Amino acid sequence: MRNKVGAILIALQIAVTMTIIVNSIFIIMERKELMARESGMDEANSFYIRSSGFAKDFNNQVTVQEDLAMIRGLPGVVDAIQVNAIPISGGGWSMGLQTKPGDDQDGVGVAVYMVDEHGTNTFDVDVIAGQDFNASDIIWRDGDRNDWPDQILITKAMAEDLYPDEDYRNAVGKTVYINRNEPIIIKGIIDKLQAPWIGWNGLERVMLVPQLMDFSAYRYLVRTEPGQRDIIMPKVEEMLASSNKGRIVRELRSMQETRDRSYRRHSAMINILTTVMVILTIVTALGIVGLASFSVNRRKKQIGTRRALGATQGAILRYFMLENFMISTVGVMVGAALTVGLNMWLMQAFELSRIDWYLIPVGMVVLWLVGQIAVLGPAKRAAAIPPAIATRNV
């Protein structure tokens, strides 16, 4: 009570530290949960490469068919496709599907992957209802073509969003509409595949379209046998470059690298918040140590007098531990209120979720422990003060 300012400052420091740490932990947990989402494909054994033709006599269709035949024939390759976009890469195509035709109908956004009959095997997805594409379903699409094939595959998540009141399997055989009025039949349902945009709320709404692209630039997605990816990648690059001199081969990238690039902002945020939490904890602990040491130095004669009157070292130790516990209690109680307030502001400003309730008591316990550990050294020094110091001029 004789040093209110110091105690209040430490309590406020503990409150601010708790507020920032608890909300930071919650944000880190959310980001890690987002980063742990499975794309649905065999990421560990998949890579892609881009081919861009520039020669006047460059034949897109012939080149694609020859390339795919060569890639699929390589030892260690499970399958390969030409594809317009890559899952979780950040760039791709999207459309809207409607259950009824008309300009007045609301559509459900869906990511579009153009594939051939090897698409499900290359992506490593399962057809859980209906049928997969076959070779006769595949058509070529050039830059002037705006119509769509008669059949598509969609993910389970897309089926559930299109028909929320029905079992997803009932979507097989139903007609949906693209471009407002163009009918398409749902041929099958695949289990799971993610869109290119990791921040999209419809991340698992995907449709596979049976089309090959008659474009001068396109990507090949390749799936290898386990452990063969890094061996196959340079072989495919060299093979494509040497097989046709009228093109440029570039952007050779594994799916693991793509995931790391797409989530690097999340990783950076986690690293920054972790650093901030560590620094804040250290600064708070040092503040507690400083206040306790200052208190011990000011009260040496008082402590010595208590020791001379029979107080044990344990009693002196408990006194300082209890004093710190009281200061920490005020700090964590204020911190709990500030934590909730900051979370409510973050929910409104950045659309974050409500903080998990258990994080607040956990944060309180952690800050209590930090306070007790920090004060332990000065408290031990106080307990070691001899009774004789009471007779000295201090």
Rank of each mutant, 00 (worst) to 15 (best):
D104I: 05
T391V: 12
P149M: 08
G202L: 11
F350W: 11
I231C: 00
R180W: 08
Q211N: 06
G173A: 07
T175R: 13
M158K: 07
S353T: 11
A382G: 05
N271F: 00
H266Y: 14
N60V: 00
N45I: 10
A171R: 02
I190W: 02
V125A: 03
L252T: 11
W140A: 00
S52E: 15
V64S: 01
A11G: 06
E238K: 15
H118D: 14
A390E: 14
V278L: 15
T274V: 07
I8Y: 06
T99W: 08
T122P: 07
E204L: 10
I186P: 01
A55K: 12
I282A: 13
T284H: 01
I279W: 06
V108C: 05
Q151S: 14
G335W: 03
I282Y: 11
N343G: 02
R381D: 05
R2N: 13
L240S: 09
V249R: 04
V276R: 09
A7G: 12
E182V: 04
Q372A: 01
A111H: 03
I178C: 04
A379K: 06
M18L: 11
P196G: 06
N121C: 02
R31L: 15
V362E: 13
M114L: 10
V370L: 03
I282G: 11
T275E: 00
A379S: 14
L240G: 08
V283R: 08
M1S: 15
W357D: 12
I25D: 06
L34W: 05
I303Q: 02
R354I: 09
A308N: 10
D142Q: 02
V332D: 02
T175M: 12
T120V: 14
N271Q: 09
K174Q: 13
W357N: 12
D137V: 00
R259I: 10
S89Q: 13
V22D: 03
E30T: 10
I198A: 10
L9S: 07
R37K: 15
A85W: 07
V16S: 06
A195E: 08
R259H: 11
M114I: 05
A55W: 05
A157I: 04
A157E: 11
G227P: 03
V296R: 01
I360P: 05
N134W: 00
T258A: 06
L352Y: 14
R50E: 15
G314N: 12
Q302E: 15
N84D: 05
S46R: 09
L12N: 02
A311E: 12
V5T: 12
L367W: 04
V289M: 07
D167M: 13
G199C: 08
R392K: 14
N59G: 00
N170E: 15
Q98M: 13
L369D: 00
S267A: 14
Y263I: 04
I138R: 01
M233L: 07
